[in-house]
Design a protein around this nucleic acid. Structure first.
Length: 119
DNA sequence: CAGGTGACTCTTT
DNA sequence: GAAAGAGCCACCT
């Protein structure tokens, strides 16, 4: 494939934007991967948002636990496949006040973050 | 370089 | 409402 320097910088810029968006999510609020991608200026790149967050898990200062998968109907749910990782995210969210059902489902009406409403 | 994978999402069965 | 299909983007082999 041989990615050119331009394309690589483009992707690096996308990651930086994704991290910027995630860092702005308030405590006890969540965004879906799709919303993060959209706010980062790349609608449709939800999967890329997931990859970016996976890579950022090791870094500090990024509240990755506040990004979840869209489940439709104003609902979202933990989307990490690995049971251990999912448990970690659940714990982090509960510690900051996010309410999750036993199946890991979160109400966006209660915890969904609307950037325009940031007061 | 091509094919497989997944922390995605929406539509249709 | 779960399961399957089809798009999507970047990563890894």
């Amino acid at each position: 494939m041989a990615k050119g320097p331009e394309e690589r910088e483009h992707i690096a810029a996308l990651y930086r934007e994704i991290y910027r968006v995630v860092r702005r999510i308030p405590v006890a609020k969540v965004l879906t991967y799709g919303q993060v991608a959209e706010l980062a200026g790349r609608p449709g790149a939800a999967r890329a948002a997931g990859a970016a967050l996976r890579a950022s898990a090791a870094e500090s200062g990024i509240p990755w636990q506040r990004v979840v998968g869209a489940a439709g109907r104003g609902r979202a749910r933990i989307s990490i496949r690995d049971p251990i990782g999912a448990a970690v995210q659940r714990k982090l969210l509960e510690e900051e006040g996010v309410v999750l059902s036993e199946a890991g489902v979160i109400s966006l009406a209660a915890h969904g973050w609307l950037p325009v409403d940031r007061s």
